[in-house]
Design a protein around this nucleic acid. Structure first.
Lengths: 89, 89
DNA sequence: TCTTATACCGGTATTTGTATCACGGTCGCT
DNA sequence: AGCGACCGTGATACAAATACCGGTATAAGA
């Protein structure tokens, strides 16, 4: 075993994470937020829809900055309710 | 062009980022911190040495939690001094 | 000296992220 | 109807992250 595939829990976490970003985006369009953050619109769409469940740290940092979100709050908000803390990627 | 290779600036940012983590780790061993965060020691070593310049968000979140670091401070600390804010990955 | 622990490095394997393109659908506007 | 902007899906392509293995080196300890 080399590169462990993402578990269903990790994918669910990715969906919750994307839902948080979409909610924070509000009325603004994907292309606008993506342009401000410096990522492609397709990448933002994949992250929001949960099809990219474990995006890179700096991608999220740029998006959080563009959306005015706190990284710490983001991380804690989408952590598993039951699990204390583990599950990285 | 499909997946733009990482720029030298992004790799330098990865080195600064890894140095921050290494400094925060202090006396603790790699395997201990990696085990607490739920990642492999090789992954932690690559991140600290800058050979993995754009790690995943949840990997960093788990490491920051294990090290007692703030994600927001981490992101702002390793941002480019000149650049206002861009550069994701 | 031998063992243990730690860290670095190279190679290998597999999965995933990021990006581009093409096509289809919906909505509002002229 | 036609046009354009936005969102969504699928395919494609390439680079990178993660993980495991073996080897090397160093330092501490029995």
């Amino acid at each position: 075993m080399v590169r462990t595939p993402l578990t269903p829990l990790e994918r669910e976490r990715g969906e919750r994470f994307g839902a948080l970003l979409r909610e924070a985006r509000g009325e603004r369009s994907m292309v606008e937020v993506a342009a401000v953050a410096g990522v492609s619109a397709e990448t933002l769409r994949k992250i929001e829809t949960g099809r990219a469940p474990t995006p890179s740290f700096f991608t999220i940092a740029a998006l959080a900055f563009a959306l005015g979100l706190s990284l710490d709050e983001l991380a804690s908000a989408c952590a598993l309710p039951e699990d204390g803390e583990a599950l990285s990627a």
